[in-house]
Design a protein around this nucleic acid. Structure first.
Lengths: 251, 251
DNA sequence: CGCGGTGTTGACAACAGTCAATTACTGTGG
DNA sequence: CCACAGTAATTGACTGTTGTCAACACCGCG
């Protein structure tokens, strides 16, 4: 039997709250169909999560990362520190996302990865090995992992677009829409809203703003009745105009 | 026999001007040692370049890219157009760089790739296949291609750092130092100088500036005796202070 | 010779950062 | 329950940076 899409999955894993396995399975089924064996492999992974406290580094920068991991709960970020003490967040990592060496390369990474909230991860070694196999034993996992790596690159392009060519409000809107799309694929987004556990300080380091400007931008968007952020939750008040403001969003 | 480094290579390929093969070989030897068979494979590649006129697209955006290619002469850029008509260049592609689907993935890319100068490319299909093989027939090529893909990611991070957290002069300096390092690895940089065939318009689309601001920034750097751009050539007047201004540069 | 692309300049307006002060929110211990 | 400390969010005044517009110079080319 193949579970072909999130709907069938929901039936298959009679659970209501998104569990670790649910997140993994829903994410993978976005990109490929999985055999029973592959589903079992994912379920086994979800059994052994590792906990990381908020704001702790998973990998320091300038070192060879130990092993690939997949986030199953919480948010993290890949970032670089600058000599002047500033921080730029390169990418946000959400549940279902991979981090670490995606091919077996023993090269140091220039970016560190840190937990932004309470975080749980599982080893992604077996997934990466599946993706690297020339004639894969697990074609579904292999394809999904490759597709995820490809999407990771597209998201870096998104970030470059935001920083290079968008206005403050457009930048913010674009990021929120991207996060909404990504969370939706792992079953963590509501109807035009989602939980967003980032402080304005962290958002500033993502968007290349000062903290003050993040604050002013959010107020602008609220005044224009486009988007509201209240108590850790983002609400899209007018999704169509928001999309127009953000320009094309690749999620 | 293994050619272990560019110096041995230079002896091996008794040619003075950088030929297509020279560029390829020098780049690969930066990342791995190559067997005779691997060198011959590179030499065969260099025999069949394809020509692309300036400003023509190699791949359009939003389409499945046909096949991976490696640039052997000229500069290109990966870019996205925005709905408002603005362009953001995501990354610059120099001789020795790969573009296109690095794993055999039939997924559309959100970015287009265009020639910025007269351009010559060769097929990189065999290289990518070598890198994807689980037990590689060509371990040197495989490692080099993986290292290049890894570096490509680091360069995207560089771009994000520039756009997010650097001043105008720092941004420009950082980009020029990155290009210098990259060109050096393929034998195309001089002593603290290199040929830079980009118009200020293109530079603006890389750096997220207006054309006018690119111009002003270049003048500022010249006034401060850090860097000069004259007739398509960049000269580092004071490399140490330039590095300090740019912050850490990953090349 | 005129033409289009490129580079340069100045004046001005809009945008975004800094600083400093204030307010809200949270969890802690009494 | 309150007081408290620490973090996060908010506000206003000010400054510096960057974009826009418009004009002009320069160059290679037909």
């Amino acid at each position: 039997m193949l579970a072909r899409n999130p709907r069938e999955l929901a039936a298959a894993v009679n659970s209501v709250a998104p569990s670790h396995f649910h997140v993994l399975a829903e994410h993978f089924l976005t990109y490929a169909s999985l055999s029973d064996v592959e589903m079992r492999l994912l379920r086994d992974l979800a059994e052994a999560p590792r906990y990381h406290p908020p704001y702790r580094d998973l990998h320091p920068a300038e070192t060879v990362p130990s092993a690939p991991r997949m986030i199953v709960a919480g948010w993290a970020a890949q970032y670089r520190m600058l000599p002047d003490g500033n921080r730029q967040i390169i990418s946000l990592l959400l549940p279902g996302d991979l981090t670490g060496p995606l091919r077996q390369l023993r090269l140091p990474a220039s970016c560190a990865v840190a937990a932004l909230t309470e975080l749980e991860t599982v080893s992604a070694q077996s997934l990466v090995e599946a993706a690297d196999a020339a004639d894969p034993v697990h074609p579904g996992l292999a394809h999904a992992v490759r597709a995820m790596a490809h999407l990771g690159n597209e998201l870096l392009c998104n970030q470059i677009i935001r920083l290079g060519r968008q206005t403050a409000c457009g930048r913010f809107a674009h990021l929120m829409l991207e996060l909404y799309g990504r969370l939706g694929r792992v079953g963590l987004a509501g109807a035009n809203s989602f939980a967003m556990p980032l402080t304005q300080n962290v958002l500033a380091d993502v968007l290349g703003f000062s903290v003050v400007h993040v604050n002013r931008t959010m107020q602008q968007l609220r005044r224009d009745r486009l988007l509201e952020v209240r108590s850790g939750r983002v609400n899209f008040v007018h999704p169509e105009r928001l999309h127009a403001l953000a320009g094309a969003v690749v999620t």
